[in-house]
C-alpha cells in the first residue's frame, strides 16, 4: 500500500504538472481539492480519471463519482486496491 501511495504521488505530480512539488510535499490524508489542500480543481479531476485508466486500467465513466475517490492519496489508493 505504501509503495502504491508513493507511486501515486509521483504520477499526480507528473499528470497535473505540479512541477514545484515533490512526493514528500503531498500528505497521505491531506485533501487534494479545495483551498485547504493542494488547491486542485475540476480539470484536475478529469486528469485523475485519465491517470487511473492509463496507469491502473480502472475506468470511471461518470466524472461526478470522482470527488470522493480523489479526496486524498489515501482514498485514491484504497479505491485502486479494491478495484484491481
Amino acid at each position: 500500500m505504501s509503495e502504491l501511495k508513493e507511486n501515486l504521488k509521483a504520477q499526480i505530480i507528473e499528470q497535473l504538472s505540479l512541477e514545484d512539488l515533490t512526493p514528500a510535499d503531498i500528505k497521505d490524508d491531506a485533501p487534494l481539492f479545495g483551498d485547504e489542500g493542494l488547491g486542485l480543481d475540476s480539470i484536475d479531476a478529469l486528469e485523475f480519471i485519465v491517470l487511473l485508466e492509463s496507469n491502473y486500467g480502472i475506468k470511471i465513466a461518470d466524472p461526478s463519482k470522482g470527488r470522493e475517490i480523489f479526496h486524498s492519496v489515501n482514498s485514491l489508493a484504497a479505491f485502486i486496491e479494491s478495484n484491481q
Partner: peptide, 11 residues
C-alpha cells in the same frame, strides 16, 4: 489508446 483523454491541452 484508452477511452479517456487528458483535457488540459484541449481546454
Amino acid at each position: 489508446t484508452g477511452d479517456t483523454l487528458s483535457p488540459t491541452a484541449f481546454i
